[in-house]
Every structure is written in C-alpha cells, then in structure tokens.
Simulated assay, not measured.
Amino acid sequence: MNALRVIRRKIMTPNRSATRMDVRGFHVKSPEARALLETVGGAFLDGFGIAAEARTPAAAKMPLAAVPTRFRGFAHEGAAMAFAIRDGLRPGGRNVARFLAGAGADHIYMAYVGVGWAMARLPRIRWSTLHSPDPLLRWLVLDGYGFHQAYFRTERYVYDLYEDSSLPWRDVTAPEYASRAIDQGIGRALWFIGGTDVEVVAGLVERYPRPRWADLYSGIGLAATYAGGATKAELTALWDHAKDYRPQLAQGAAFAAGARAKANLVCPHNEVATRIFCGQPVALAQKVTDEAMVDLPSDGPVPAFEVWRQRISEAFVRSGHYALTATEQK
C-alpha cells in the first residue's frame, strides 16, 4: 500500500518547474526575490505531495510541521489542495474535513485558499464536493481560485483583464460578490507575477478598471505581508502607490497578520509590513481582525465576509494611519 501512495503522489503532484519564474514568464526583480518566490512555490508543492501520499490527513501532520516556519503556511495550503482533489475524485471522501479538524486547524485561512486551488483543477460537476463549511471563511475558496487563475492563466486574467462575473457559487444571497472575492486572490497573485517589484505590481493594478482596484490592493497587502520579498523602503513605496486604497491594503495586511499569528508562524518581515501598512505590530493587527469579527450580521446582499473586511478597513481609517505618506511614517 505504501508503494501505491508513492505512485499517487507522483501522479498527482504538479511538476516543480511549474513554479519557476522563467517558466511562468513572471518579472524577476532580483535573484533574491526570485529565490524567495520559487521557494514559496516549492513549499506549496511539498505540502501537496505530502497530502497526496499520506494515508490519512493525520499522517500528514508531522511532515508538514517539519517545513521551515516561513514557508509552513504555504505547505498547508498545498496540502489542502491535494486533500480537496482527492475528495473530488473519490465520492464520499472526507479528507478536507479531517484536515481542518486536525493538522490544518491552525492554518484554516490557508487551507480554505488551498481548497480554492482544487476548485480550479476539478471539473465544475465536482465542485459540490469542496468542503468549506464556515459561511464566513468560504469566500477564501474563491480567493484561492482567483490566485490560481491569475498565476496559471496570466494572459487571460491579468493581461486580458478577464473577470469571472458569472461563476456559479453556493452562496445565493450575494452571488455577485464572487467576482470580488476572486479579485482579492488575483491581487495576491500580482505580487508574485510582478516579482515583488512594487513599480511593476502597481503598474499591473493600473491596467484594471478602477472599480477593481480596492480588492486587488487588498490581495496585494496580504501577499506582501504574508510572503514578503520587499524591503521597508519598497513597502513604503507601495503604501504611497495605493493612495486611496490604503485602508484595503491595511486590511489585507491584517488578514495576513491573523493567519500568521494563529498558526504561530510570525516572522520578522511580517512585523515590518504590518507596521507600515497597519501602523502597528502583528499582534495588534490580528486583534483588529478578531474584534471586527464580533457580532457579524447574517449573510445578505452584502456577505458577512465583506462586512468583516469593511470593519477592519474602517478601524485603520479611524486610526488616521491610512492618511500618512511614506515620509510621514518615518
């Protein structure tokens, strides 16, 4: 049986070359930035492979925990994708449910995003198998779907500005919000596609219609904070580029802070980013996200997830930090 699991891993796991910047045609800012982003992609594939081979989600816990701190969240994201694909290919599979209840519990944000990657790889007839029971966090599945599409279908989603305006989604109260959740994932992908080069990333945003900028900058703030790859000077330049979208940039950074802190994966680059985008350290940025989650309304035309995001953005607006220029922050 072990040999069969090894074969399953080899068959399921994408080729590592798929994460190379030259293969993807992404911008390379520097050898260091390239190495970082390719290491992130490699960690994702490592997590995917671990889950593809694991007999059960519990068996994946120790190998995933062995991934270096900075990249461990990406490995759990990849693992969630693999477990979701396994569920999608086998009727009645409950791998994701067990993963969320065990090894993936502290990485729940990344796990939901990983399910979104699986969504992009499974036929639509199998989307009903995707396990995302939390009505608040299930929008992160679409975030993951958006990242995947921009990362692997860059010409269509980034340069042709394609928008998934009619994607079928299980939420019937706010189906039109699906495209916005997808844009948040596309924004995260722009950080990778632009090679963490702030000028390039901002230029990619400016190709899109302005109504999409807020969600794109939210995703960029999350990626720049969670993955890193930019210096303090570069992050302050991004802050200046965002201008009217600084509250959304801060909201994305706060999401990243919450994801890192919940999983006990906080690294120095996370602290640098949250101090620039949120005006406070990771612990306080996480507190903003937790407080904004209290007494959220039921889903309606505006989903609770968007109310949560708005509350976080508004908290940073009230702080006055969003109005500061990079020079004033110094």
Rank of each mutant, 00 (worst) to 15 (best):
R124H: 14
P123W: 06
F277D: 01
G144H: 01
L238F: 08
S17I: 15
Q280I: 00
G146W: 07
E155P: 13
A103H: 03
P168F: 06
Y157I: 13
R5W: 14
I85M: 13
G92L: 01
A120C: 01
F316C: 01
Y109N: 06
F48T: 12
R210S: 00
L190Q: 03
Y151E: 04
A54E: 07
F99P: 02
G73V: 08
A80R: 06
D215G: 09
A285C: 03
Q280E: 05
D215N: 15
S128A: 15
F192S: 01
G42P: 06
M293F: 05
A214F: 02
L204H: 05
Y208A: 09
V115T: 11
S166N: 11
T325R: 15
H241D: 05
S313I: 00
Y217S: 13
G228K: 04
D134F: 15
K330N: 15
I50A: 03
T39W: 10
W239P: 00
D295Y: 04
A181D: 11
K29T: 04
L130P: 12
A230M: 14
Y145D: 02
A256C: 14
F83G: 00
M21R: 11
L64S: 04
Y109D: 02
L37V: 04
G104A: 12
L204V: 05
W139I: 13
A189P: 04
P68C: 09
A304S: 13
D240G: 01
K29V: 07
P14V: 14
D290M: 14
T274E: 06
A283N: 10
T289M: 08
N264R: 09
V23Q: 04
R318M: 09
G41Y: 01
Y145G: 02
Q184D: 12
R153Y: 14
H321I: 02
S218I: 00
E38S: 02
Q184N: 08
P297M: 05
A103Y: 04
P301A: 15
S179W: 12
L161A: 13
P168H: 04
H107I: 12
A79K: 10
L190V: 05
R170E: 14
Y208I: 07
A223N: 07
D164M: 08
P168M: 03
A214C: 08
G219H: 13
W239C: 01
A59H: 04
A224I: 01
K262S: 07
W191A: 07
